[in-house]
C-alpha cells in the first residue's frame, strides 16, 4: 500500500479531489440555494453565485474588532486548513492515496471538531454577546453530536475491523450487501442527523437567518469581513461538501476508483460530483419542508441519533 501510495497517480488523485472539493463546494451551496429558490417559486441567483460572493469578498477590506487577539485572525486559517486536510485524506475519488494511514475516521471527526472550536474561539474573542452566544451554541451542538458521529463510526468500522476510511470503503465495495445490514442503515440515519447538525443546516440552524437570537453559525462570524469572511464561507461550504461526500462514500461507495489510473479517476470524479449534487439537492428539498427547531429541542434530535448510533453498534455486535 505504502509503495503504491506515493506514485504520481495517487498524488494526482489527492490533488484532484482537493481541487474538486475546493472548486465544487461553493457550487454545491449555489445549487442548494438554487433548488430552494425554485421550490419557493423564485428564479434564484444561479449556481455560481457563491463564487461571485467569494470573489467579491476577497477584494474587500478586512476588519478586526478592537480588543480581539491573534485568535480572531488565526481562526479562519485553522478552519480552512483543517477542512483541507480532511479533504486530502478522505477517499473521495480513489481508495488509493499517498496519505494512506495518516488519518482515520476518528481523526477526521476530530479535525472537524477542531474547525468548530477555532470558529467558536473566534466568536468568543470578538467580545460581543452574539459571538459568545454563537460559540456557546455551536460547541454545545458539536459536543452532543460527537458521540453520535463516533458511534456511527464505531458501527461502520466494527464490521470491517478498522476505522481506516479506505478500508471501510473497500469493504463495502467488496460486499455490497453490508449496506443493507441493520447496523449500516441505523448508522446511516445517525450519520445523516450529524451531518445536518455539524453543517449547520435546518432544523438545527438556519444559514439564511437575519435574526441574531436564532443564530448559531452566523452569530460567530458576525464580525468577520473581507478575505477572512471569504475563508470562512469557503470552509463552511467545504465542510458541508466533505460531510456529504463522506456520507456518500461510506454508505454508497460505488463509482470510486480502486486504482489511480486516469480514466477511473475521471469517472470517479464525475460520479462523485453527481452523488453530491443529488445529495445536496435532496438536502435542500428537505429543508424546504422543515422549520428551524427551538435550540433546546436540538438535544432531542441528537439524543435520537445517539440512540440510532448505539443501536447500530449493538446490531453490529449481535447481528454480525
Amino acid at each position: 500500500m505504502t509503495a503504491s501510495g506515493l506514485t504520481a497517480g495517487a498524488l494526482a488523485a489527492t490533488a484532484g479531489q482537493l481541487a474538486l472539493v475546493v472548486g465544487g463546494a461553493p457550487l454545491l451551496v449555489g445549487l442548494m440555494r438554487q433548488v430552494r429558490a425554485r421550490l419557493e417559486g423564485r428564479a434564484g441567483a444561479g449556481v455560481g453565485q457563491p463564487w461571485r460572493d467569494l470573489r467579491k469578498l476577497l477584494g474587500k477590506e478586512a476588519i478586526r474588532p478592537d480588543g480581539s487577539s491573534w485568535v480572531f485572525t488565526m481562526a479562519p486559517l485553522l478552519l480552512l486548513a483543517s477542512t483541507l486536510v480532511i479533504t486530502a485524506v478522505a477517499p473521495f475519488l480513489s481508495t488509493v492515496s499517498p496519505v494512506e494511514g495518516v488519518a482515520d475516521l476518528f481523526a477526521v471527526v476530530s479535525l472537524l471538531m477542531l474547525g468548530t472550536v477555532a470558529l467558536a474561539l473566534a466568536g468568543l474573542d470578538t467580545g460581543t454577546a452574539f459571538g459568545g452566544m454563537g460559540a456557546s451554541r455551536a460547541v454545545t451542538v458539536a459536543a452532543l453530536a460527537e458521540p453520535t458521529i463516533l458511534l456511527a463510526v464505531f458501527a461502520l468500522s466494527a464490521r470491517v475491523g478498522s476505522s481506516n476510511l479506505a478500508d471501510i470503503v473497500e469493504s463495502t465495495l467488496t460486499t455490497p450487501a453490508q449496506v443493507l445490514s441493520p447496523a449500516s442503515l441505523l448508522a446511516a440515519v445517525a450519520f445523516a442527523v450529524v451531518i445536518i447538525a455539524e453543517a449547520g443546516r435546518l432544523p438545527v440552524d438556519n444559514p439564511a437567518t437575519h435574526l441574531e437570537l436564532t443564530m448559531i453559525h452566523e452569530a460567530m462570524v458576525l464580525e468577520y469581513a473581507g478575505r477572512d469572511l471569504a475563508m470562512i464561507e469557503l470552509a463552511s461550504a467545504m465542510r458541508l461538501t466533505v460531510l456529504l461526500g463522506l456520507g456518500a462514500n461510506l454508505f454508497m461507495p460505488w463509482g470510486i476508483a480502486t486504482t489511480v489510473a486516469p480514466l477511473p479517476l475521471l469517472g470517479a470524479a464525475v460520479v462523485f460530483a453527481v452523488k453530491l449534487g443529488v445529495l445536496g439537492a435532496g438536502l435542500a428539498v428537505f429543508e424546504v419542508f422543515v422549520a428551524k427547531w427551538r435550540l433546546f429541542r436540538v438535544p432531542e434530535l441528537l439524543a435520537g441519533s445517539f440512540l440510532f448510533g448505539l443501536l447500530a453498534v449493538s446490531a453490529s455486535f449481535f447481528l454480525a
Binding site: E40, G44, Q49, R52, L211, E218, E223
Partner: peptide, 21 residues
C-alpha cells in the same frame, strides 16, 4: 419576495454590516 426576486441579481440582505457591501 418571489415575484420580484431581487436575489437573482446577486443581491442579498445580511445580518451584519461587516458582511455588507
Amino acid at each position: 419576495g418571489p415575484v420580484y426576486d431581487a436575489e437573482r441579481y446577486g443581491l442579498r440582505l445580511v445580518a451584519s454590516p461587516r458582511h455588507a457591501d
